[in-house]
Design a protein around this nucleic acid. Structure first.
Lengths: 259, 259
DNA sequence: CGCCGTCTTTGACACAGGTCAATGCCGGAA
DNA sequence: TTCCGGCATTGACCTGTGTCAAAGACGGCG
């Protein structure tokens, strides 16, 4: 369990707004690399296919780039949901907390991921920048207005929500029924896959988040995460490197994860 | 952990179709008790407010009442999602399984709840009748067709999905960070609340599901569930009765659940 | 009525993972 | 360069929960 943080007077970030110079050039071709439109501020993976070039332009126009330094909060659990975010750089942790400080990280948002898409009036989880983070922010009213009257997009959003739910259910299975070793193995494979989707496919899996974060994501303690990683390293399944892990035997990990 | 079931050759239910006599009377007033329209086959809590009377009629028309005896399967994990269900009577368990038989129940569906609303092409979880179950079934194409062109409904559905996600995240917190006693306390309170919403508000909480089901829902073993219940009974927090529990001190439970 | 199968409870014991504490590692400040 | 503070690792030990086994409780059925 997480020990109550002494440093829990977490500052609410005052993000630095940028003028979005550079992405303002209007000769944008909306080239659809695997990162979505390369010129645009937003990085759409999942929703991209549902959008016309003109719609992408419009979406881009109502957006605003913001930076959040590492460890600052994008929004707090239960706060009025004023914005929808699209992460473009860095990693965000999403979590719920118990009054005594125990914390459960329900997910890490990587570049391309959306936050606040549920479109409920309050955020159900808190979001903090793990690394320095760049996001594309949409004011809720503008986004709602944009979405309304685009049933295909609404539909897409709904499918997307269904996918999120499915992932959450996978995580329940992991939290409720898997051993520490299985949890860590599944986590590493999962991260590898997700990094693969944003270009950095490799056996080198960066772990920008702390051991505490990993522990709070997997329902373990920091010591158990550390020990498990060491054990996997001793068994030549992984190599622990600064800020990451190199996967030696994905097969073995698959086996351990017992997907 | 769940021991591998010897009886896992679970039969795929061949539901008995009914002719829906009785609810076919067309003088339905669509009286909106807390159960939705009392005359209709469907029992809509969450989505109800978004529908006009005429739309409810239409929805009712494309629906079909089916019965599933206890322990039969409504659909399997990964199966083609051919139907959307609205539970009208009984309880359904939704779960994911590991290849070795370990099982995680991700939720219990009570009357009024929808199954398969994610509208993805495959079910992400399996669904089994805990008790005898009566559902209102919509063929996917008909339901999709019905939903399309009703943006307000689509919107509502999306909000509903967001709510589901939020519940799933609460469950992650429970699974990852709570003790056995906290889990059981939270479970009982949660059930009480949900029963309250469908009319049977009382300190008597029916537990139609087995101890194994509760264990698989809370990430515990059957023995731990049993012991915890016994402990709560010794402390005069609850009384264990046949197929249920009477809550003596909701306050104490709240305190234990540490919401 | 008694038998039997299934579920639940209870007890004794084991162990995965938590707790506590010491040490190591590293990067930034002076 | 050294000091310092914040992680991460490692070890020793403990405990909550799992495992195994036996004994009720209960309902269906002959």
């Amino acid at each position: 369990m997480t020990e109550p943080k002494t440093d829990n007077a977490m500052t609410f970030a005052e993000p630095i707004a940028e003028t979005c110079a550079g992405s303002g050039k209007s000769d944008c071709k909306h080239g659809r690399g695997e990162n979505g439109c390369d010129d645009c501020k937003v990085r759409l993976f999942s929703v991209c296919g549902a959008l016309e070039a003109s719609e992408l332009d419009e979406l881009d126009r109502i957006s605003q780039v913001k930076n959040f330094p590492a460890k600052t909060m994008l929004f707090d659990q239960g706060a009025l949901a004023g914005s929808v975010f699209n992460v473009t750089e860095g990693i965000v942790r999403l979590y719920k907390s118990l009054p005594d400080g125990r914390r459960q990280i329900v997910g890490f948002a990587l570049p391309g991921d959306f936050l606040g898409l549920a479109l409920m009036d309050r955020y159900g989880v808190a979001a903090e920048a793990v690394t320095n983070v760049k996001v594309c922010r949409f004011a809720r009213p503008a986004f709602l207005n944009y979405v309304d009257g685009k049933p295909h997009l609404l539909r897409r959003l709904h499918e997307f929500a269904g996918h999120e739910l499915s992932l959450a259910q996978d995580q329940m299975l992991l939290l409720g029924r898997r051993t520490a070793e299985e949890k860590v193995a599944a986590f590493l494979l999962n991260l590898q896959t997700r990094y693969g989707r944003i270009g950095a496919m490799s056996v080198n899996v960066p772990l920008p988040m702390s051991r505490q974060d990993i522990a709070d994501y997997l329902g373990l303690t920091i010591e158990t995460v550390s020990r498990t990683l060491t054990k996997l390293a001793k068994e030549k399944v992984v190599v622990v490197v600064p800020d990451g892990v190199r996967l030696l035997s994905t097969d073995r990990l698959d086996q351990l994860a017992a997907a």
